[in-house]
C-alpha cells in the first residue's frame, strides 16, 4: 500500500552506516609524541608520587620478613607471598570481608533504589523527604558507627540485644551502619538516574497498560541499569575496604569473627611485611571481583547509545 511505499524515503531509510570499528593505525611523528608526553606529565607525576611508587614499595615490602617483633627485617623473597596468601588467616579475612559485602551491598542498593523510586514524584514537600533520605550520605562513617553502636548496645541501647558479642550476629551488627550509609548513596545516585528517564516514556508505558510494578521492573530498572551497575561496583569496593565500622562496633571480635582483610592488615603493626602481602592480596581480590562484575553484568546493562 502507498503508506509504506511513500514512507520509504531513500534518504531516511538508508541503513545506518556504522563507522569502521578500527580506524587504521596512524603514525605519529616525534613532535606529536613529545607534545603528548608533555600533556601527560603532570598527571603522570601526581600518580607516580602518590600511587605507582608507593605501590611498588608495597610490593617490595612484601618480600621482607619481620624478625623479633618488627625490630629488623630479613628479605625472604616471593616465599612470603605464597605463605601468607595461601594461609588460613588470609582465607578467614577474605571470608569475613565477603560476608560484610554480602550484608551491605544488596541491602543498601535495594533499599536505596526503593526509596528513590518512592521519592521520585511531584508532590508537595517531597524535597524534605529527599533531603532526609540522602542525609545518611552526609554523616561520617565514624558518626554512623557510633550511632549504631549505641542503638544496639546491650546495656544502654535502644534495642537491648547483644549482637556485637554474638559471633553469628557480630558481622551483621558491624554491617548495619554501612547498610544505612549505602542506602543514602544509592538513593542520591538512583534518584538522579530516575530524573534522567523521560516522562513521556513512562507515560507511554502507562498507556500501554504497564502497571506500577511492571513499569518498575520492565522500564525503569533497565533504563537506569548503568547507574545500578556503577553503584554495585563502588559499593562492593567500599565493602571490601570498610574498616571504621568494624573498629568501632566489634573491634574484630568476638574471637576474630569480624576480622575482615582490612582489619587484619591494620593489626600487622609488628609485621609490615605480612601487612604488605595482605594489602596486595586485598588489591588483587578487589580487582578480580570488579573485573568479573563488568565481564558478567555489563552485558545486561543498557547504555542509551546502543
Amino acid at each position: 500500500m502507498s503508506v509504506s511505499n511513500a514512507m520509504a524515503a531513500p534518504s531516511d531509510d538508508a541503513p545506518v552506516v556504522e563507522a569502521p570499528k578500527k580506524a587504521r593505525r596512524r603514525r605519529y611523528d616525534a613532535k606529536e609524541v613529545g607534545l603528548a608526553v608533555l600533556f601527560l606529565l603532570p598527571s603522570l607525576a601526581v600518580f607516580s608520587i602518590f600511587f605507582y611508587l608507593p605501590f611498588a614499595r608495597l610490593l617490595s615490602w612484601g618480600t621482607y620478613e619481620s624478625v623479633r617483633g618488627g625490630s629488623s627485617y630479613n628479605q625472604v623473597g616471593i616465599d612470603q607471598y605464597q605463605e601468607v596468601l595461601g594461609g588460613g588467616e588470609f582465607r578467614a579475612g577474605l571470608w569475613h570481608s565477603l560476608q560484610f559485602v554480602i550484608y551491605t551491598v544488596p541491602a543498601g542498593l535495594i533499599l536505596g533504589t526503593l526509596l528513590a523510586v518512592a521519592a521520585h514524584r511531584r508532590l508537595k514537600g517531597i524535597k524534605v523527604f529527599q533531603a532526609i533520605f540522602s542525609s545518611t550520605l552526609a554523616s561520617s562513617v565514624a558518626v554512623s558507627s557510633v550511632i549504631f553502636f549505641f542503638l544496639f548496645n546491650p546495656a544502654v541501647g535502644f534495642f537491648e540485644v547483644s549482637w556485637q558479642s554474638d559471633p553469628s550476629w557480630a558481622m551483621f551488627a558491624a554491617a548495619l551502619p554501612a547498610i544505612w550509609q549505602n542506602l543514602g548513596l544509592a538513593f542520591v545516585i538512583v534518584l538522579a538516574g530516575l530524573q534522567a528517564v523521560p516522562d513521556e516514556v513512562m507515560e507511554a508505558a502507562r498507556l500501554d497498560g504497564y502497571g506500577p510494578l511492571r513499569r518498575l521492573t520492565r522500564i525503569t530498572l533497565p533504563l537506569i541499569s548503568p547507574v545500578l551497575m556503577f553503584l554495585l561496583v563502588i559499593l562492593v569496593i567500599y565493602g571490601f575496604q570498610a574498616f571504621a565500622q568494624i573498629d568501632i562496633i566489634t573491634k574484630g571480635g568476638p574471637g576474630g569473627a569480624t576480622e575482615t582483610l582490612v582489619f587484619k592488615i591494620f593489626k600487622q603493626t609488628q609485621d609490615y611485611g605480612k601487612g604488605a602481602v595482605l594489602s596486595v592480596g586485598l588489591f588483587c581480590v578487589t580487582l578480580v571481583v570488579t573485573f568479573f562484575q563488568f565481564a558478567i553484568l555489563d552485558r545486561r546493562v543498557h547504555y542509551g547509545d546502543e
Binding site: 513521556e200 516514556v201 507515560e203 507511554a204 508505558a205 500501554d208 504497564y210 502497571g211 533497565p222 543498557h302
Partner: peptide, 19 residues
Amino acid sequence: DPSRRDISMVFQSYALYPH
C-alpha cells in the same frame, strides 16, 4: 485508568522504549 480507555498515543518525542 489510561490503560482502560482503549486509546493509544504518539508522543512528540516518540517515547519509544530505548532498551
